[in-house]
Amino acid sequence: MTPLEKVAGRAIPLGLKNVDTDVIIPAHWLKTTSREGMGRGAFESLRADPDNLFDRPEYKGAPILIAGDNFGCGSSREHAAWALGDLGIRVVIAPSYSDIFSGNAVKNGILPVVLPQAAIDRLMEVAATDPIHVDLDTQTVTTPFQDRFTFEIDPFRKMCLLEGLDEISLTEKSGAAIDAYEKTLDAERPWMRPAV
């Protein structure tokens, strides 16, 4: 996973609420055994409109996406995070996310920034004309107009993003604890093993 510390650039002012992962990447794009190339199907239904935001020259390759409440709701498909990543998006800014999406995003080096609606409204305004800066280390979003918004993030997620950590390797260090848990489980609830 590519580490993430500072991201600066244009931000796509999508702004919609309840953007579900079927909208981010429709199911027919899920028929693949690879993680690559998902950007082609990203936001397909929105991009059917020739005047859509994503394909405007000023937002091509924009590293930031601004959205409304409950971004990434619905299906657990990690393909949504892969699709955003393939579009070049490294940061999403929204008032709230679905729990599954925000986890998937972090595991793919995408930072889900949570800011209140008022801040989102201001950033949407700025995004129409100017770039936005996001600094994970200082947990701030700033604009060329002296706007400065700070955001909260779970410290573990922050560390994973900053260092580009592979969570499986991290968990494997707890191998002995998992062994011990399994032993206790077998002793206390042996019937938890499938009967056949």
Partner: peptide, 15 residues
């Protein structure tokens, strides 16, 4: 529900 990275994590570690 979990994402595919978590599927891999569970397959590898059962946690």
């Amino acid at each position: 529900g979990i994402g595919t990275s978590e599927v891999e994590h569970v397959l590898a570690t059962q946690t």
